[in-house]
């Protein structure tokens, strides 16, 4: 376990030097919420406070971004020459995978910490249990998305451009066809049918439920929790399989 912590710390230290990008993400969230969120909430009817709804949606989108960043990060490791080095270290592949997952989790926690606290302050009505449940949902979603991106990483070993195109396309579909910005009951039927398949729909609805939104405008929480848990477990399992069985360091010459 000591080596896992060393790996996480070493890589995290690299990623956060300097920590500008995380600060920029926090600033983006604050500006979006304070200006766009406040303005748009004046126009939206049918939801008692759209700014709060929007804040949670934005945190969920950041979680999704961070999850896909973890997956992409792994691919970048391969192309920058770090993966062959990591693969040659005297540690089992399972521990290497655990370190990647843990690092992703810590980065996620760092990135959403400020936006999440701001959202909680904005909502004002929460309990310790509801906050813990909401955080657990976000982590479940983050790990699931990272697992999907890791699962797609084998494409990157053939073509980095193809991987970028596929993940960018997939990300935009997953975000657009979801309930991060609009409640499920207000979506047109065709749009709503597609949104049911987006993990962001289930992540955002579950977090909203835990933070006190009206259950009538949200999906069935048991259904959403089951889908998110299944996604995290299956895709992380797939990612681990890929790392143990398929992944090879990209040959440099």
């Amino acid at each position: 376990m000591r080596n896992v912590i060393r790996l996480v710390w070493f890589d995290l230290n690299h990623e956060l030097r300097p920590p500008i990008w995380i600060i920029m993400e926090w600033l983006t969230f604050t500006i979006q919420l304070a200006i766009y969120g406040a303005l748009i909430s004046q126009l939206v009817t049918g939801i008692s406070n759209y700014q709060q709804f929007y804040a949670i949606g934005f945190v969920v989108m950041m979680t999704f971004d961070m999850g896909s960043h973890t997956g992409r990060h792994f691919v970048e490791h391969a192309h920058e020459g770090r993966l062959p080095y990591l693969l040659s270290l005297p540690i089992p592949r399972s521990k290497l995978f655990l370190s990647i997952a843990l690092q992703g989790g810590i980065e996620l926690a760092l990135m959403i910490s400020v936006p999440f606290v701001v959202t909680l302050v904005l909502i004002g009505n929460f309990t310790i249990i509801s906050v813990v449940a909401a955080i657990a949902t976000l982590f479940c979603l983050g790990f699931g998305v990272a697992g999907v991106m890791l699962g797609l990483s084998f494409i990157a070993f053939k073509s980095a451009d193809l991987y970028t195109a596929i993940t960018a396309g997939l990300s935009s579909i997953i975000i657009r066809f979801s309930t991060v910005l609009y409640p499920f009951i207000f979506l047109p039927p065709s749009y709503a049918a597609a949104a049911l398949f987006s993990p962001l729909t289930h992540g955002s609805d579950l977090v909203r439920l835990f933070l006190g939104f009206d259950p009538n405008i949200l999906l069935n929480p048991v259904y959403s929790a089951a889908i998110l848990a299944a996604l995290a477990v299956s895709t992380l399992g797939l990612g681990m399989f890929i790392l143990q069985r398929l992944v090879e360091g990209v040959k440099s010459a």
Binding site: P84, S252, A253
Partner: peptide, 22 residues
């Protein structure tokens, strides 16, 4: 037994790359 192998060997790669900010 890849883990056992990695415990007895070390490799210096052809190209030194990777940890740009360390």
């Amino acid at each position: 037994q890849p883990t056992k192998v990695r415990q007895v060997l070390g490799i210096s790669f052809q190209e030194a790359r990777g940890f740009w900010r360390h």
